[in-house]
Design a protein around this nucleic acid. Structure first.
Lengths: 219, 219
DNA sequence: TTTTTTTCAATGAATACTCATTCATTTATC
DNA sequence: GATAAATGAATGAGTATTCATTGAAAAAAA
């Protein structure tokens, strides 16, 4: 929106000797912001609310973030990297493509369940796409790439159908998973999200049709 | 936000003798607003922009709408009703559940393709759910109900599997369809959306797995 | 019919208010 | 004591909403 001139070095994400993230201001503000965003949506949230939630002064936020947009941006950047590593790991530790597929979806659900505020922000704020956040697209793209990889391997292994419209399949799977997360978020996160992985994978693999009957067609 | 005291009667959606909606101010403003919302997002859009797009003065908008939020609300209310009738019709005119299912999804895609601004607003703005719009939930709920109906009938007719977790299936299908619409919107609406209906239905019915192999399990 | 009066939708400048952002001052750290 | 970090009140840009004024058209009077 305005000029990007950082007056001070920022991004001093300190790690303490245990390797755990030190609860420094930067982190505290980020978490507070996501909580507020999750509750009210990005545009309704004010810097003052975030500052209060983080227990700092309004001005302090500007020592760590360029502006309000930058808070969301840094959140995406941070979480996206972190989550993507988990996804990667889940896929890589599996032997065959079927297991990779199941692991990926289970991991997706588990990670979002583990950080509900993040889930809300991703689900609610992410769709806008377009201008604010190339980062968002990046996560989506990475996810789709991993999925594509798994599906193609699955085809090679004879586990998945050969006649698939891959780009459609990728979107469709991501859509299905996000719909389940969105429902869970919306229901207040009351039930166990990860346990939806198996029924969901079953749907992806077998579909809802019985036998070989293709509904709506008259062969 | 403030008190709800309407000083004048509003909502005079005039129908001319042909039954077509007369292009009165109310309608003109609504369409203009959705265009602006689609381009910039609700919060970035200003009343002045909408007024300019509609070719009226800023103040005129307040003769037809309580406030900015109300524009979005009335849009949802209006479109939701309209679209739902189409969905209903698509389902009712089919004989068997398979055809109903296919019709519903095709209709969904066709309607969204036919009004891209609407699609953008629904996809981008709708996820927030929560507070602003019980209307939104209403559309979703109606859609899920119709879907549930179709799926249950399909089970009775032996077309769909009996061992389905219905509430999961409903969400999952809506998610898949929305993902396809979202992709289309995001790609700039360049290709034909309705033609995705058949491949999509195929995925829903048959899944991506080959034969009876259930991936990731070791039976 | 012509003239006068009333009405009320439409206008857009003025208002009121919200917030992101700044910066002079205070507090902590070394 | 000097440097760095944090503060929060003050600023002002942006914009939703209001309302006194206008003028075209309908109704009433002539």
């Amino acid at each position: 929106m305005n000029e990007y001139s950082l007056k001070k070095k920022v991004v001093n994400m300190v790690l303490d000797t245990n390797g755990k993230e030190k609860t420094d201001k930067h982190h505290k503000i980020l978490e507070a912001a996501i909580k507020v965003f999750a509750e009210q949506g990005f545009f309704r949230s004010t810097i003052s609310q975030i500052a209060k939630e983080a227990g700092v002064a309004d001005g302090t936020i500007y020592l760590y973030f360029k502006n309000k947009d930058d808070i969301l941006l840094q959140f995406y950047s941070y979480k996206t990297r972190k989550i993507f590593n988990k996804f990667r790991e889940a896929v890589d530790k599996a032997e065959n493509s079927g297991e990779k597929f199941r692991n990926l979806i289970r991991c997706h659900l588990r990670e979002f369940q583990g950080d509900r505020n993040m889930a809300v922000v991703y689900i609610a704020e992410a769709r806008k796409g377009q201008h604010l956040d190339p980062l968002l697209d990046e996560l989506t793209k990475m996810y789709l790439d991993v999925l594509g990889e798994v599906v193609e391997q699955g085809q090679a292994e004879g586990l998945f159908r050969k006649d698939l419209y891959i780009s459609l399949v990728k979107r469709y799977i991501l859509g299905g998973v996000e719909a389940i997360i969105s429902t869970w978020v919306y229901a207040g996160g009351k039930y166990d999200l990860e346990s939806m992985a198996d029924p969901l994978v079953d749907l992806f693999l077998r579909g809802i049709g019985s036998n070989d009957v293709v509904a709506g067609e008259t062969p």
